[in-house]
């Protein structure tokens, strides 16, 4: 009777749990857009009626636009550079067997785990003490690169694993050099991963706060601007409006990236275990 796999038997309590889990995961974030339309400077129930004035208020501020442009500039630059470096790293890790692979992979993935405050202060000391470089958007981008290279590498690794190296070898056998083999064979195969890496790294950099907190000069990025506004209770509604826009924008970009890259199962690649 119970020879029919119990695994396929639906588990009601677990289903309910999963549903509650997802609701709890998203509910706090959804309060931001909800209250951004609330016609009151206080974030509390009962809500006072619908308004879009906080959004209008936001559009009129030049500081918001300046911060947005700064974040976009840093995000675009960081996503491009980290994706290029990530392509090299992912290719080396997935295509070659080499001495010291596992420690190297761990080293590359380290920034995903080490508290970012440590990178923030370490880079601050590097720029301010050793190099004497004034803090600017460049220093912020430098910090974000540390964080984004592991992301790019992790996103691109399954793409390299997903196609047969024999295709590249065939191209080489047919007389293409390494440069053209890359552009005509490898690149089209990993293109979804490249686009996903660009989009995801852009979001990570766009939303990153801690590194920017230590490495920003006079030009604030958008998270820095939001942080500055959090001190003023009367700014709460406009911060809610701005936060809602940022979160919705991030969700769309990330979903797009994951959808484009949907046939690469990132959970199947575990950094370092294939060595």
């Amino acid at each position: 009777m119970s020879t029919d796999s119990y695994i396929n038997r639906p588990n009601r309590p677990l289903q309910v749990y999963a549903l509650i889990f997802l609701i709890v995961l998203y509910l706090p974030i959804l309060f931001l857009p909800l209250f951004s339309f609330n016609d009151s400077i206080y974030v509390r129930f009962p809500m006072q009626g619908f308004t879009v004035q906080w959004y209008y208020d936001l559009m009129a501020r030049s500081a918001v636009w300046a911060a947005l442009m700064n974040s976009v500039k840093v995000g675009v630059a960081v996503s491009i550079v980290s994706t290029v470096l990530g392509i090299f790293a992912a290719k080396a890790i997935t295509r070659y067997r080499f001495f010291g692979k596992e420690p190297i992979v761990i080293f590359i993935m380290l920034p995903l785990v080490v508290p970012l405050i440590i990178f923030g202060v370490a880079l601050l000391v590097l720029f301010a003490q050793l190099l004497g470089v004034p803090l600017s958007l460049y220093t912020v981008a430098f910090g974000h690169l540390i964080l984004c290279i592991p992301f790019s590498t992790a996103v691109l690794m399954p793409r390299f694993e997903g196609f047969d190296p024999a295709i590249e070898e065939a191209s080489a056998d047919l007389g293409e050099n390494a440069w053209w083999t890359f552009w005509r064979v490898t690149f089209p195969m990993i293109l979804p991963g490249v686009v996903a890496s660009l989009l995801l790294c852009f979001t990570v950099s766009f939303d990153e706060f801690i590194m920017a907190f230590f490495l920003t000069g006079t030009d604030a990025t958008l998270p820095m601007y939001i942080w500055g506004q959090l001190r003023f209770p009367q700014q709460f509604p406009s911060v809610l409006a701005l936060s809602s826009l940022v979160i919705i924008g991030s969700f769309i970009i990330v979903l797009l990236g994951l959808w484009i890259n949907r046939d690469a199962d990132m959970t199947k690649t575990k950094a370092g275990t294939d060595a």
Binding site: F88, A92, Y96, F98, I108, P111, A122, V125, L126, I146
Partner: peptide, 26 residues
């Protein structure tokens, strides 16, 4: 293969090496 692997890895590795190890040393 090890040489080739490190050659391909070098851009990312050099950057991260510079950006992580030197600041930590300081």
């Amino acid at each position: 293969e090890t040489f080739r692997a490190y050659a391909v890895l070098s851009p990312a590795l050099l950057f991260l090496g510079f950006a992580i190890l030197i600041p930590f040393a300081i």
